[in-house]
Amino acid sequence: MTEMTRKPEGTPPGPVPERRILVLLDGSRLSLETLETVADLARASNARVLGIFVEEVNLLRSAGYGFAREVGRSSGITRPLDVESLHRRLDAMAVNIRRAFEQMMAPHGVAGSLTTCQGKVAEQVLTLAQPADLLVLGRAGWSGGSGARLGSTARALVHQAPGDVLLCPAFTGGVAGRVVVLLNHDQGANHRAVRVGAELAHRNRSPLTVLVRADGEDDRRLLTDLTAFLRQEGIAATVKCLTGAGAIAMARAVKVEGAGQLVVSRGSRLFSERGAAEALLCALNIPVTVTP
Rank of each mutant, 00 (worst) to 15 (best):
N190K: 12
A198C: 01
R231C: 01
A245D: 13
A251W: 08
T291G: 12
L211F: 05
A236I: 08
E217H: 13
H202C: 01
I248R: 14
A253V: 05
T209Y: 00
V239W: 03
G197W: 05
A237W: 03
G234I: 13
Q232L: 08
A251M: 10
A236Y: 00
H191M: 08
L222I: 04
D218W: 11
C241Y: 02
V256T: 15
R221S: 05
A236L: 10
V239C: 04
A189N: 07
G275T: 01
D219Q: 03
A259M: 10
T224C: 00
R195Y: 12
S272I: 01
L230T: 07
D219N: 03
N285V: 09
T291H: 08
L280V: 14
L284D: 10
G234S: 13
M250R: 13
A193P: 11
R266T: 07
C282E: 15
S206I: 04
T243P: 06
G275Q: 05
R274I: 01
E233F: 02
H202K: 06
T291Q: 07
D225Q: 11
G267I: 00
R221Q: 09
A249H: 11
G258N: 06
A236K: 07
A279Q: 15
H202S: 11
L281E: 06
R203G: 01
L280M: 14
I248K: 14
A251T: 07
V212C: 05
T243C: 08
R195M: 15
T243E: 11
R274D: 10
L284N: 12
G234W: 13
V212K: 02
E199R: 13
G260M: 13
E217F: 10
A228L: 10
H191P: 00
A251S: 15
R192T: 13
V264C: 09
R266C: 10
Q232R: 12
N285E: 15
S265G: 15
R205T: 02
R192S: 08
V239T: 09
A251G: 15
S265A: 15
S268T: 09
I248E: 14
V210K: 04
A251C: 12
D215E: 05
V212A: 03
H202W: 03
A237K: 06
P287T: 10
A201E: 06
E217A: 11
N190F: 04
V263G: 10
R203L: 14
G197C: 06
A189T: 14
I248L: 14
T227P: 05
L226R: 07
F229D: 13
C241L: 08
G260A: 12
T224A: 12
I286M: 09
A277P: 05
R266Q: 15
D219C: 02
D225V: 08
K240C: 05
D218T: 08
V254G: 11
G234Q: 14
G234H: 14
G216R: 01
R231F: 00
G197R: 02
C241D: 13
E273D: 06
R231S: 13
D219Y: 00
D215M: 01
A201H: 04
A236T: 15
V196P: 07
G275D: 11
Q261H: 12
A247T: 03
A283L: 06
V212W: 00
R220D: 11
